[in-house]
Amino acid sequence: MKINRRIISDAIPTSSMADITFLLIIFFMVTSTFAATRGLDFSLPKEDKNPPMIEKEESVLITIYRGGGLEIDGKSIQPEQILDYLKPKLERNPNKPVIIRPDPEAAYGDMVKIYDLLRRGKQNGLEVRNISIPTQREIDQFWY
């Protein structure tokens, strides 16, 4: 008697694999974004009912005006001169507070630029340890 055996293929069918993987690629391409995930860290001070009083003479005040104009302790200055101005003061007192006070109408980008400049002082051998950006409410409450 003749037995007609069916031969079963031992190959894994992979013809549809490319289709499936292409669909997956299209899904990931459409849904993924290169999100901006870096920035400047800015530690907020704890709310203090009685903050330590700082004499104006003991701190350095940087004012940012609308349009990007800068003043340091009442004198007009260029951004690249700020660290040179701070160097002798911080050598005498490394913990001297440096206060950034942007004008309400100044651009936020200008504040970030100055804050970045002060934070980068460490790379140039001048660490600005005490950077403060008081809010308008704090200025109204504690400024004198």
Partner: peptide, 27 residues
């Protein structure tokens, strides 16, 4: 970057009031 600072100031102020420990200024 072009937002007037007073808007950012108010937001930072409320975050301080809410006792947020650290804010990252995305750049």
């Amino acid at each position: 970057a072009t937002v007037p600072y007073k808007t950012v100031d108010r937001v930072i102020d409320v975050l301080k009031q809410a006792r947020v420990p650290v804010v990252y200024l995305l750049s």
